[in-house]
Amino acid sequence: MQIFSEIYGAYYRIVSRLAEMGRVTDRDVQRVIEAEGSRETVLFLPQRILPQKDGSDWGLFVRQADGTLVPVMRQTPHRLTTLQRRWLCGIAHDPRIGLFLDDAAVERLRASLADVTPLVPEDHIRWIDRYNNGDAFTDPAYRAHFAALLAAMRAQELVSVTYQSRTGAKLRCLFLPLAFQFSEKDDRFRVLAVRYRKGRLQSCWVLNMALIAAVEPTGRHVSPPPLDQVFEERRCREPAVVRVSMERNGADRFLMEFASYEKQTDRDLATGDCLVKLWYDAQDETEVLIRLLRFGPVLEILGPPSLRAQAVERVRRQTALLEEERPNET
C-alpha cells in the first residue's frame, strides 16, 4: 500500500475529470487544471493532455473536426484501493460517524468494509494529552442538534438555538451557522455561527456543541458572510510578540507547538534567540497566554502591553503564593 502514489495524484484526477465531461474544449482543460492543480500545473499539464503534432502528448484525448476533444476511454470508474477502504473502515467505527450517517447507513457502511481492518487500529495510537471530558458524540440529542445545524448550514437557514452559557443561564437566539470546528485536544465540536438580531447578521459566536440544548429551524434563509471575513473580524488587533531562547531546546519546542498559527519568525544570530510575531483569534487570548506560560523562563512575552500585563499579573500572584507558603525545600 503506497500513500505517495500517482494514482491519488492531481494529474490523474484532472484527466479523469476531463474524461467524465466527455467532449471538452481547450478552455475546459485550462479551467479544470486551474481548479484541481497547483499554481504551476497549468505550465506542465496541458501539453500532455492536448494532442501535439510531435506525439508528445499521452494520447488519451483525440481532437475532433470541430476542435473539441474527446477521451479515448469510455469510463473512468472511481474504484477504491485497499488503502482507501481501510481508511474508510477506520471512520466507520469512529464514534463520530453517527453525526453524519443514520444507524442503518452506518451498518451498511461497516458491512461493505467487513473484509478490511482499520488503517490505524485503536490500540496502535495513544493521545497523551487529550482532555478527558470530550463530547458525547453518540448521545441522541447531540446527534439531532448536529444534524439540524448541518442541514441549516447547507440550506443557509437561520435556526433558533437554545444555549446554556458557562454561568448556567439559558439563552435563546437566532443564528446562522457557518461551520463546525473540531478540536483534537478538547475532543469536541464547536459551531461558528453569526447571530441574527434586529433584522441583520451581527457578531460571530463560537458555540460549544455540548452546551446546545435545542436547535429549531425557522424557514428563513440568509446569505452567509465569507468565512475569511469572519476570521478577519475575530483576529487579534496586534500580534503577540515573544522572544524564545535556545535553552532547553525552547525555540524548537515553541516553533513546533505554534506551527499551527500564523506567525513571523526572525532569529538573532548572535544569541540564537527567536523573535516571533504570532496572530491568533482574539477570543482565544487566554488559551494563548497559558500556552506561552508553559515555556517558563525560556520564553518572554514582549507585547502587546495588554498580553504582557496578564503574564505580569499571573507571575506576581505566583510569587506571592510561593512566598506565603515558604517551602522548606527550594
Partner: peptide, 20 residues
C-alpha cells in the same frame, strides 16, 4: 468497491468524508 456506489448507499457519507 466503487466510491460512487458507496456514497449512494450511505447517505451522509459525503459530509463524513469532508469532516474526516
Amino acid at each position: 468497491h466503487d466510491a460512487d456506489d458507496l456514497l449512494a448507499a450511505c447517505p451522509g457519507l459525503d459530509e463524513a468524508l469532508r469532516s474526516f
